[in-house]
């Protein structure tokens, strides 16, 4: 097998997961000016829900998938009501701490309910994948890349071509003005949390068969996704996607050529390099901290 194209394929596959979670980050950030530190736990919880439905209860895969996403929608709504909404008028620091608290709560509640043993979730397809041109195309990675592409396309359509999408954009750009026009701002923020939770959930379910389903998967994925958003340019949707893919590729090559245990450290190094050299990221000037 040819190593470089193989690594490239794997890197893009894993990077697509980071990109999905990063999209959730960016959406919530744009709507609320808050970084949701529990974004990774959305992926983790969804993966566990999937294990419960598809493995423990033996439901069909598609039904489990829909049920897990329904669960994520509810979780996103509860998250907004319990973690963000009571603090919406406070500065960013209490909100950050609150989302960190929520992250610990979600991870450890899952641990308390399911125990520390990593779980295995089978992939969607029976077949392992296909060999073409010296590269093995793993079926789950193909699915990840495909679903990511579809979701990115959907999101583009939703934001650019629907009235609700425009209202969401208006809300993220100027909440007070949006409310003066009659846009239900609280509802829009709720929608953002629900959608971001579902997005994070899809990422978690897709990546679960590749990794183990473990309590720690959430924070690992969240760190990568955050690094991806910084590489891409904070608050920028295109940047989140490109940053996620880039990080996946860098990490995969790093693991192959440098060191496996430290591949997570590599992402951190890239993050720090960007913070020092180009904090506005690859795309754009919108370093979006509130003054």
């Amino acid at each position: 097998m040819d190593l470089v194209p193989q690594l490239l394929f794997t890197g893009i596959g894993i990077g697509a997961v980071y990109a999905l979670v990063a999209l959730g980050f960016v959406l919530i950030f744009r709507a609320t000016n808050v970084v949701n530190f529990a974004q990774g736990e959305f992926s983790m919880v969804a993966a566990f829900l999937m294990v419960v439905f598809a493995v423990d209860l033996g439901w069909p895969y598609w039904l489990s998938f829909l049920a897990a996403l329904g669960g994520m929608a509810v979780l996103g709504a509860l998250f907004n009501l319990g973690v963000y909404y009571p603090l919406r008028h406070r500065s960013y620091l209490p909100v950050i701490i609150s989302t960190i608290g929520a992250s610990i709560l979600l991870a450890n509640t899952t641990l308390a309910l399911y125990g520390p043993q990593p779980q295995v979730l089978p992939g969607w397809f029976e077949t392992q994948g296909i060999l073409a041109g010296g590269v093995f195309f793993d079926s789950q990675y193909l699915l990840i890349i495909g679903v990511t592409a579809v979701l990115v396309a959907f999101q583009y359509w939703f934001f650019e071509h629907t009235l609700v999408g425009k209202k969401l954009q208006a809300t993220s750009q100027d909440k007070e003005m949006a409310s003066l026009l009659g846009i239900p701002v609280a509802g829009m923020i709720m929608l953002t949390f629900v959608y971001s939770a579902v997005l994070g959930g899809i990422a978690g379910i897709l990546v679960a068969p590749v990794l183990f389903v473990s309590i720690g998967m959430g924070s690992t994925i969240a760190l990568k996704a955050f690094a991806a958003t910084i590489i891409g340019g904070f608050g920028d949707v295109t940047g989140a996607i490109v940053g996620g893919l880039a990080l996946g590729v860098i990490e995969t090559f790093g693991a192959a050529y440098i060191s496996v245990p430290y591949k997570d450290a590599l992402g951190f190094l890239v993050l720090v390099v960007f913070l020092v050299v180009r904090p506005q990221g690859l795309f754009g000037e919108r370093v979006a901290e509130k003054a």
Binding site: L87, I100, G101, P116
Partner: peptide
């Protein structure tokens, strides 16, 4: 396992609010 840290997480949210 986990219960006790879960309560820590909950405590953080409640204290902050």
């Amino acid at each position: 396992p986990g219960l006790y840290l879960a309560l820590y997480g909950l405590a953080v949210i409640l204290i902050i609010i």
